[in-house]
Amino acid sequence: MTAWPDRRIQELFGISLPIIQAPMAGVTTPQMVIAVSEAGGLGSLPCALLSLEQAREALDTLRQGTSRPINLNFFCHLPPQADAARESAWRARLAPYYVEQGLDPEAPVPASNRRPFDSAFCELVEEYRPQVVSFHFGLPEQALLDRVRAAGAKVISSATTVSEARWLEAHGCDAIIAMGWEAGGHRGSFLTDNMATQVGTFALVPQVADAVKIPVIAAGGIADARGIVAAFALGASAVQMGTAYLFCPEARVAPPHLQALKTAADDGTALTNVFTGRPARGIVNRLMRDLGLMSPLAPAFPLAGGALAPLRNPSAPAGPGDFIPLWSGQAARLGRELPAGQLTRLLASEALAKLSPGGADR
């Protein structure tokens, strides 16, 4: 075998390699997206933390840097309802850290906002016409989804269960990202909030592949050629990789975060809601240990992050990485410090070598 065993995603998206760089809000740069797309994979720009002006600026950079397919990623969460009592309790719980760092616990809380997909973002899609638009936490309302499709984009979204995958297929997705328990960052869950029953990637992928007719993209814990080959063996048509790209020079990763990634253990990550109010996987740090991984005090997503913002001041006398989210999947120790384009091509060539006759021993 000298070719990929399933080319549906490559044909659907118009890419040459079945490797998708995960959209990682806050750390993905346009330069990373360009490098991955130019290498033949699918570069993904996360937009949830960007204003319209910032998104437009990033898209202008992308279009100047590559004419190849790109993916724009958006969140689909409902804006939270204000809960003054819960937010007050959260601030009271964080007050000792403020005092420790010489900050005023009563100072106004900065806004913590992750913008869900809306008509203004949809106009941006219509203007720039990306080849792929991906969503997290389900899908937007039907009228917006129809506009995305009319702009010519293929639509994909994350599923953490078979039920979510079936729902996404029924609501018009062109492919499903089967997001396993191992994945770093925010869970894509939208039909369940029970984290105790979440499924691992290599149990989820074949069940989703059996349950839907559209192509499946495996995500979670895949960081080298062995994971790519395994994903294809289980029915995936492509892989989405995030943590592997955090080691690339194009990633905007804070020094404490990068150091934590370089020294991460296989059992060093956990799901937590303390940084944003929604379950996300990161390397365990002081805040997670002190508050508990899933704190009932954390305000609804994304409000929990506002009161933490002053504690993330790099000049504050906190330990490195104590109060910042160190997002990571469970396979960080497999990461390699390579430019994003080189990494994409290397992963593909190594996987193809293993897929060739006799390649399993390589």
Rank of each mutant, 00 (worst) to 15 (best):
E100D: 13
F121Q: 10
A225P: 11
V27A: 12
G188K: 06
A85L: 13
L346S: 13
W4L: 11
E87D: 13
V125L: 08
L291T: 05
L78Q: 15
T161D: 08
E123Y: 00
G306W: 02
V239H: 02
C248Q: 09
L50Y: 06
M294C: 06
D361Y: 08
A254K: 01
T161N: 05
P116C: 01
Q21M: 14
N113G: 00
E164N: 10
L49V: 09
Q259T: 10
A351D: 13
A280G: 11
A159R: 04
L287Q: 04
Q64L: 07
T272F: 03
P339F: 07
S189T: 13
V162R: 09
N313F: 00
T160D: 08
A304L: 10
P215T: 11
Q207C: 00
V205E: 07
H257Q: 11
G184Y: 03
I283N: 02
A159E: 06
L49I: 05
E87K: 10
S315D: 15
P296M: 11
I222H: 01
A153I: 03
L49E: 05
F247H: 11
L168M: 09
L308D: 06
V133M: 04
F74D: 12
E53F: 01
A251L: 03
G26T: 10
G180H: 07
I324T: 12
F275G: 07
G65R: 08
P116R: 00
Q101P: 00
R86S: 04
M32K: 09
L12H: 04
P302L: 07
L297A: 14
L191N: 13
E123T: 11
E127I: 03
A219I: 04
E141D: 14
A316H: 13
R187I: 05
D267Y: 03
E57G: 10
R345K: 15
V125S: 01
S158T: 15
A196K: 10
P105L: 12
C248W: 06
L12K: 02
G359E: 01
S134A: 15
P69F: 01
Q10Y: 01
L311C: 12
P30W: 04
